[in-house]
Design a protein around this nucleic acid. Sequence first.
RNA 1: GCCGACGUGGCUCAGCGGUAGAGCAGCGGUUUCGUAAACCGCAGGCCGUCGGUUCGAAUCCGACCGUCGGCUCCA
Length: 597
Amino acid sequence: MLLTCPDGGVLGLDEQIPQDDLYRLRHSTAHLLAQAVGELFPGVKYAIGPPIEDGFYYDFDLPRPLSEEDFPAIEARMHEIARRDLPIVREEMDRATARAFCERNNQPYKVELIDDLPEDTVISFYRQGDWSDLCRGPHVPSTGYLKHFKLLSTAGAYWRGDEKNRMLTRVYGTAWFTQEELEDYLRRLEEARARDHRKLGKELGLFVFAPEQVGSGIPLFLPKGEMVRHLMESYVREVQTRYGYQHVWTGHLVREDLYKRSGHYDNYRDAMFPPMQDVDAGITYRLKPMNCPSHMTLYNLSGLKSYRDLPLRYAEFATLYRYEKSGELSGLTRVRALTQDDCHIFCTEAQIESEFGLALRLIQEVLQRYGFTDYRVRLSLRDDNPDSKFVRDDEKWAKAEQALRNALDANGVEYFEARGEAAFYGPKADFLTRDALGREWQISTIQVDFIQPARLGCKYIDEHGQEQTPVVLHRAVTGTTERFLGVLIEQYAGAFPFWLAPVQCVLIPIADRHHAYAHQVAAHLQGAGFRCEVDGRNEKMGKRIRDAELQKVPVMLIMGDRDVENQTVSVRRRGEGDLGAKTLAEVVALFTQWRDA
RNA sequence: GCCGACGUGGCUCAGCGGUAGAGCAGCGGUUUCGUAAACCGCAGGCCGUCGGUUCGAAUCCGACCGUCGGCUCCA
């Protein structure tokens, strides 16, 4: 096995995986898995099997695909091999010997790996008993060290991550030093599943999917879900306005020609919904998959611009439609109808750094308001593969990349670099976060574009009366409302902060005779701008408290005879319990304080 | 799109060759209650769709649709 993880890039693995003991343990467990599969399925061809965060995987080319039903037998064999306590020994070979060895063992993937190793690489194998694998190491001393592991799932994976190649069978597993750590990890997985936004979205009545009736990847928002969306968007709109952004609106259909001119048609045709024909006029439309060309058109048609008009910032909450492949759809995090909080900033080259800084501060303010700290910033650059989508204009790319780096450095942002992740028109700074199950998603982004403005004929007149092409910064704050909401639900485990909760307060009158008072209190709070519901169901108070707690409503107001008499309500905070009786004025003051916190 | 698993009332799930079950939710009644589940009753499903095997299919086989876990992709 060749371990190309930390610097390989090929595997798309994160560079932060440390070469520590746990890494070594997992790496060896991957070998153990491979040996077990080899013993159970003679003729298996091995691909690669690296350690990954929390575990490992191994890719096999097998006569038949594995399913989880095969796991007990494989795990049993792994334990058996572990009990043999085979020493794991390193053996170095020269290239020709290594190649011949792998060919003799009918391991074509290993041969391919050897052929691709740089000239000066020391080629090593790790042997345990009569089983051996191409591998850089390091490993634990013997198979006896491997005790606390579990196979988790199978998956198809293309050889070398290329969909043109053969699909292999990948087995994922986890491994730990102690049984407690293993069990703890499995428990964490369980807990993560409990905060899955798809589950919570259903339980909390936020959204549904109707693949058979409306379509896959098109979330339908219930009143509570729409309330949260509305709050999220109003909030970002308020911040953007405060930062000098202007909001525009550009519709849902666009003539296809525009995307041919912008370059999107060539790069993303397959990911757009099929064209629509206006037969009478002979025009072809597309559902709008991105805003840039529309905003640039708006720029062009709203009068000739002077350098004094720049920077000009067009923001839009636009619902876009993208034909994501069926297998890629995932709850709210990957949808076909998505609402971006998009913005295009038209500016001069000299303004890039300050505009980037402004966008960055805006993003940081918003993420902080949401209590969002678990993200990292990726500087996404092009690669030098001549077949890739990136527009070829070295000078402009170099300029854009330098501008982005300067801006990141000037603002003291920590980031890591990823080649091949840029947009076709320029490099970007992407903000990545993880969902409950550890999958990484892009939220905020700032992109430098030296290409599209020229293609679409954007211009301004500089201080010398000369025509110039503006630079465009593409920028999204929360990314898409849908995805960000999905990630937020998981971060909060469904318990939204007071300002964002769709229902901020449930009023619980103890007996029927308290209903009128409850409605009176509710009306008062609604008048003060808070979202309240009266739970007047014929259920015991304890049951209604329980339901409100399970629905993650931040506040419950309970009222009985004492309260009616004293004109108070008894305040209960979710997860905290009874805070005692308060007057309405006190409640409004408390609510205001919680809302603005 | 590709590989694998799964698809039973609104929700969570049992049944896996012989005429469809439970809990929760819903509806009707009784109860009027002080901080996380009162009681009684009623109703609700062509078992994803289409085709095949069988005397007989929710149960076995196939195709399609959808969901889930990955892979690929992500303007």
